[in-house]
């Protein structure tokens, strides 16, 4: 069993590391620094850390002002309150003027667990990718989170990063190259392609193992960058495997599935299926129970793949 680390933990560690090297970085939080892990930056850089209290709209307004004055800003809260509550501030004061703010939102998806539906943001990818110029990242493990956060810091413009609460398997080693905008091929295959993001990448890999035993040879892509989406990898997968299933811990309305479908429909139509949350709110439960309840497990992906392969034949 691989090590398990939450992507929010990796984010906090990455922030502390780049913050030590780059004193232009300023970090903001809204009373959740112990959960978003920005506390790891705050500990060594108290003069560059600002906790604005429970005020997420102001969190992103103040971030915009700091960025307009030349700072590289990382501003964190839960995904629900970043992409949800502060959407219009992010849209108008960060997106519209294209300011250098990294919106690093933790506790995304149903794997928030016991806190329930009010705190399980399953709309953030849809909302954030609708903002022109916004880069949208959704890392699958600790290693790729660190790599993507480091690259995000070097981009002069707005970036949204979707991070999770729960510990997830470490999928990559330090030697693996993870680049913004480039899907990571984790497993080659010819029968169909599983395009997954975030916590669903590990589930897709497990599903591919199951399927291999049945003679179904699934390709697995880690689509850690939702925008700009890696069109080339999607088109190649469609041409070489003839079918696509997207896997996301997010509503199927307009997130990863929507982004991939926009490419498939226009550039290389092949059968597609969507593993994700089907127009429902989340609820309380343990993360593993919730993945099962919402049809987001390796078994659900494998079943969708079997149906897809049958349809192809």
């Amino acid at each position: 069993m691989a090590d398990k680390i939450a992507t929010r933990q990796a984010y906090g560690e990455a922030l502390a590391a780049i913050g030590a090297e780059n004193n232009n970085i300023v970090v903001l939080d809204a009373d959740l620094s112990g959960s978003t892990m920005t506390k790891l930056f705050a500990k060594d850089n108290p003069d560059r850390f600002f906790n604005v209290g429970i005020a997420e709209q102001n969190l992103y307004g103040v971030s915009a002002g700091l960025a307009a004055s030349g700072k590289t800003v990382f501003a964190s809260t839960f995904a629900m309150f970043a992409a949800g509550r502060a959407f219009e501030i992010i849209r108008n004061s960060i997106g519209y003027p294209h300011l250098n703010v990294k919106i690093c939102a933790t506790h995304a998806g149903v794997t928030v667990g016991e806190d329930g539906g009010s705190h399980q943001c399953i709309e953030d990818l849809t909302l954030m990718r609708s903002i022109p110029g916004m880069i949208v990242l959704s890392p699958s493990d600790a290693t790729s989170t660190k790599a993507l956060i480091k690259q995000a810091a070097d981009i002069d413009g707005p970036v949204y990063v979707r991070l999770g609460r729960a510990a997830v398997p470490v999928l990559y080693g330090e030697q693996d190259e993870i680049k913004i905008g480039k899907a990571k091929l984790l497993r080659n295959g010819k029968s169909l392609t599983l395009i997954a993001t975030g916590v669903m990448v590990a589930e897709a890999l497990a599903a591919a193992e199951t399927l291999a035993a049945e003679g179904i040879d699934a390709r697995v892509l880690d689509m850690h960058t939702i925008k700009p989406i890696d069109e080339e990898a999607i088109i190649t997968a469609a041409k070489e495997t003839g079918a696509i299933i997207t896997c996301e811990e997010h509503t199927v309305l307009g997130g990863l599935g929507g982004a991939v479908a926009e490419v498939i429909v226009q550039k290389c139509p092949v059968p597609m299926a969507f593993v994700g949350i089907k127009d429902r709110f989340g609820q309380s439960g343990k993360p593993a129970e919730l993945l099962k309840e919402y049809g987001l497990t390796a078994a659900d992906i494998a079943e969708a793949a079997r149906q897809m392969v049958a349809q192809k034949r």
Binding site: F50, G61, V62, G65, S69, P97
Partner: peptide, 29 residues
């Protein structure tokens, strides 16, 4: 629109946001 107009320090129009960004600018200073 701060991108288009020299001398405009912040894109505004959606009320309440300008003062919030001004706080960020003062903090940066």
């Amino acid at each position: 629109d701060m991108i288009k107009v020299p001398g405009v320090e912040m894109s505004t129009g959606s009320l309440g946001q300008g003062i919030s960004t001004a706080v960020g600018m003062a903090l940066a200073a």
